[in-house]
Computed example of a mutant assay.
Amino acid sequence: MKKFIIPLYLSASGLLYSQVAVGASPENNNRWTFGGGIGVGFGSNSAFYFQASPRVGYRLTNDLEGGAVGSVSWQTSDFYRSTMFGVGPFVNYYFARSFYLSANYQHYFINYKDKYYDFKMNTDEDALYLGGGYMQRIGNNSFMQIGLMYNVLWKENSSIFSTGLVPNIGFVVGL
């Protein structure tokens, strides 16, 4: 499985980069931005994780962007299965064309099943991520974003998430 997914991910990244670099124009008068991130993970006990988070934004000024982001993730192993959907607004402030500050509110809908104890749970949870990061230009108006966010609503014993700290990598076209 790993021999299939890693080359597929690398090929998709190469295609995305070539489309962004060829299709980008020096003057971008369109204020809409598009992007997101994708993640895949593997672990012990047949653990598999897939996550996608598309986003659409609108540049309010050259340095301020607002929009909506969604997320979907699937996790499975020998012991559990989980599906999670999230949606919410975000705002990004860009400075020095290489850095950004971000606020992102997400409302998650969570479906969890423990296979070992035959326990099922359907719940929802709110998250308010605050953070920032670095942007690397990959085309005329396209960037890769690398950052760190913290969920200020996270509580250790009452959250479905194991931690409030979230590293992220994503792409955005249209800045």
Score class of each variant (00 low, 15 high):
4 F>G: 08
5 I>Q: 01
5 I>L: 09
6 I>R: 12
7 P>Y: 05
7 P>S: 06
8 L>G: 12
8 L>P: 01
10 L>C: 08
13 S>T: 10
13 S>V: 13
16 L>F: 13
17 Y>H: 12
17 Y>G: 11
19 Q>I: 11
20 V>K: 03
20 V>W: 04
20 V>M: 10
20 V>F: 08
22 V>Y: 11
25 S>R: 15
25 S>Q: 13
26 P>Q: 09
29 N>P: 01
36 G>Y: 00
41 G>M: 08
44 S>A: 13
44 S>Y: 01
46 S>W: 00
46 S>A: 13
47 A>E: 11
47 A>S: 14
52 A>K: 03
53 S>C: 05
54 P>Y: 04
56 V>Q: 01
58 Y>A: 10
59 R>T: 00
62 N>E: 15
62 N>H: 14
62 N>Y: 06
64 L>S: 04
65 E>Y: 01
69 V>L: 03
70 G>H: 01
72 V>Q: 07
74 W>H: 13
75 Q>Y: 13
75 Q>D: 11
75 Q>K: 10
77 S>V: 08
77 S>L: 05
78 D>A: 11
80 Y>F: 14
81 R>Q: 15
86 G>K: 05
86 G>P: 04
87 V>C: 03
89 P>W: 06
90 F>T: 07
91 V>W: 00
91 V>Y: 00
91 V>M: 13
93 Y>N: 11
93 Y>W: 15
97 R>I: 01
97 R>A: 08
97 R>P: 00
99 F>Y: 12
101 L>A: 15
105 Y>C: 09
108 Y>D: 08
109 F>S: 12
111 N>Y: 02
113 K>R: 14
115 K>Y: 05
120 K>F: 06
121 M>K: 13
121 M>Q: 15
124 D>I: 04
125 E>Y: 05
125 E>S: 03
131 G>A: 11
131 G>L: 03
132 G>C: 07
133 G>T: 05
133 G>L: 02
133 G>F: 02
135 M>C: 09
137 R>N: 13
138 I>P: 03
139 G>I: 01
139 G>S: 11
141 N>W: 02
142 S>D: 10
143 F>A: 09
143 F>K: 12
145 Q>H: 09
146 I>R: 03
146 I>V: 14
147 G>K: 07
147 G>W: 02
148 L>Q: 03
150 Y>L: 06
150 Y>S: 09
151 N>T: 04
153 L>P: 07
153 L>I: 06
158 S>D: 13
159 S>P: 02
164 G>R: 01
164 G>M: 05
170 G>N: 14
175 L>Y: 10
